[in-house]
Design a protein around this nucleic acid. Structure first.
Lengths: 213, 213
DNA sequence: CATTGTGAACTCATTCACAGCG
DNA sequence: CGCTGTGAATGAGTTCACAATG
């Protein structure tokens, strides 16, 4: 696994894509796949696939291609998704509940282990899945036993920064932020944003400029 | 509004960010803002802000900065979010319901006007918001009256491509895809993907490589 | 005179093209 | 022979640095 060369962020995004296509290929009974085919499935350039993989090693067989199962495992190792991860979530509104119930997360090794809110009406309630919603004030105390790896923010925008601060204070330095707010964190902390409205804005921009509605 | 120069996709993403920060600045009572301040709020480089805006015109006053209200309106015009947009959604599971109930969308001019599913148990049911879930087979027929601008996919991965095909067949060529599936569409159709698991994979990659968990 | 607007320099990412090899 | 792996070429995007200016 190379460490010397700088790896583009987009490479990581694509590795995640490759991984999913490899799962589908395995499911469909394929043993081998070429960079050309994998590229087509992911809608990227074949050289891109090879270069992306090249950052991390040599996984292919020249003249043949890649072993689907093996490459899949290698990619999962690179992305560190060959293990279980523990997540805590703050903000149990519509979206929070939807994520807690979403079967994709546990299926891929991402488990919610605690749910928090600041609304007294919600605190103490039990969700369908056996989760009791806890007071967000307990976050730091609770996280001592919980071994949370990742904090998920599904609060309204106004509460996002305070929630991020709590996570960091609790020693959690990886955050998945679903709120449409820019959160500011110390540089040792990692944040990924999932912002619906930005994507909608891009769509409307393109609708106007590329299609002309 | 320039059309000659090629505008980076990332510029559009940032314009959406600027727009939101401008709303907050206006709310906080600011009349003017400098590229330096706006940049800090959005965590980008000040020259980036000026260059991004520069693609579309000259909106600032040298030596002073930008008028918050005016710039906000200009950016909204560029992004085409100075109007209402009509969305249809297919796949009324946990996530679909959460989106239908989400107040951020209507607040920003994005309205769900129809909801579809393929599950006979769901079809015909009325959601809290007065929506009746319709049979996805009716999508094409229904869309004749509905004037849908954007199709939202919240089906499981397995159904995403079929749903995209339906949207396209119904004449809708802007899709917001929440499923973790790569969908293939003709090039006149625009797709934006919102893929939770990719973001999680990026987080875990960075946790392993930058933090070393 | 502080801040914008922008060409030029630079950095980063993608694609090409072909040598290397199973 | 065909496909991988990769240096070299190209292309895209960001940052610098400073002239322009309200």
């Amino acid at each position: 696994m190379e460490r010397t060369e700088k790896i583009p962020k987009a490479t990581i995004t694509r590795l995640s894509l490759y991984c999913r296509q490899l799962e589908l290929l395995e499911f469909d009974g394929y043993r081998m796949v070429s960079s050309e085919k994998l590229a087509r499935l992911c809608q990227v350039n074949p050289a891109q696939v090879r270069k992306d993989l090249g950052y991390f090693g040599e996984f292919g067989i020249r003249g043949v291609g890649y072993e689907v199962k093996e490459l899949q495992e290698e990619v999962k190792k690179i992305l560190a998704i060959n293990r279980e991860w523990r997540m805590g979530i703050v903000g149990i509104g519509n979206l929070g509940v939807a994520l807690l119930r979403h079967e994709n997360f546990p299926a891929r090794g991402f488990h919610f282990i605690a749910a928090f809110d600041s609304d007294p009406d919600k605190i103490g309630r039990t969700l369908r899945l056996g989760f009791v919603i806890r007071d967000v004030n307990e976050l730091k105390e609770a996280s001592k036993d919980l071994e949370m790896d990742i904090g998920v923010i599904t609060t309204p925008a106004a509460g996002a920064q305070a929630t991020a601060d709590r996570f960091i204070d609790a020693g959690i330095n990886a955050i998945l932020n679903f709120s449409p707010a820019q959160i500011h964190v110390p540089e040792y902390c990692i944040v990924e944003n999932i912002d619906f409205t930005i994507k909608l804005d891009i769509l409307t921009y393109k609708l106007k400029n590329e299609i002309g509605i």
